[in-house]
């Protein structure tokens, strides 16, 4: 795999380690220490993936993330020593593609990078049918099948599943689901999403204790478990 990776971290040892490690895996790597440099580099160099530390001097990571999202199509993986779920939710709500808590091993980071790059390709290709095991979501026909048998969903259930399928493999927060499924004026209540997901799981025959399709990230949101090899692009 190759591609351009921009590392944004104020710790020189982290920059050095990631530059070395990722270069060995044949990525082009540029490493900067501040948010200002990150924004100018993102504009000029056009990286595929940005690894963004939240605790930056000067303009902070969240601001950098917001500005990046305005003008860059790069996938953003937020790296943070803060394991606080509120930071995680906030970064994801601002458009981060993934969130990795420091410290981490290089293998884990590589797996995350590969996943976001694959997802980007799939979203850009506009997958028409998303599969997770024997769950099949046909986005064109608005049809949901489990093991070849059609499952009837309410419009809300379908919209929620559709949004998860469009971002298959990505962790989607309660806030984003509320906004996307219930609309901008939804009276925000994460209980709504919990309730609809519980209904969806029941209809899809998904055991919440051993979910095959919809995985839960406590305090954050949900992820449609999907093997990216099974995302089909229309031919």
């Amino acid at each position: 795999m190759s591609g351009r990776i921009l590392v944004v971290d104020d710790e020189v040892e982290i920059r050095r380690a990631l530059r070395t490690g990722l270069t060995h895996h044949r990525f082009d790597v540029e490493a900067v220490a501040t948010g200002e440099e990150a924004l100018s580099s993102a504009a000029a160099w056009k990286p595929d993936v940005v690894l963004l530390d939240l605790g930056l001097p000067g303009i902070d990571g969240f601001t950098v993330l917001t500005r990046l999202r305005e003008k860059s199509r790069a996938a953003v993986i937020v790296l943070s020593v803060m394991a606080d779920e509120r930071d995680k939710v906030r970064a994801l709500d601002l458009g981060a593609d993934d969130y990795l808590v420091k410290p981490f091993g290089l293998e884990e980071l590589l797996a995350r990078i590969r996943a976001v790059v694959r997802r980007q390709a799939a979203v850009a290709g506009g997958a028409a049918v998303v599969r997770a095991g024997d769950l099949e979501i046909d986005l064109e026909r608005r049809q949901v099948m489990v093991a070849g048998r059609e499952v009837h969903l309410t419009p809300t259930e379908y919209e929620l599943l559709r949004y998860l399928a469009l971002h298959a493999g990505k962790l989607v927060t309660h806030t984003i689901l509320l906004r996307e499924v219930w609309g901008a004026y939804a009276v925000g209540e994460a209980q709504n999403t919990r309730y609809v997901v519980a209904q969806l799981r029941r209809k899809l025959g998904d055991d919440p204790a051993r979910p095959k399709y919809i995985a839960t990230e406590p305090g954050v949101g949900y992820r449609l478990r999907v093997d990216s090899n099974e995302i089909q692009t229309p031919t």
Binding site: E11, A17, L18, K102
Partner: peptide, 8 residues
């Protein structure tokens, strides 16, 4: 974090 990133 620096240690683990470097060592790995």
């Amino acid at each position: 974090a620096a240690l683990r990133a470097g060592l790995t």
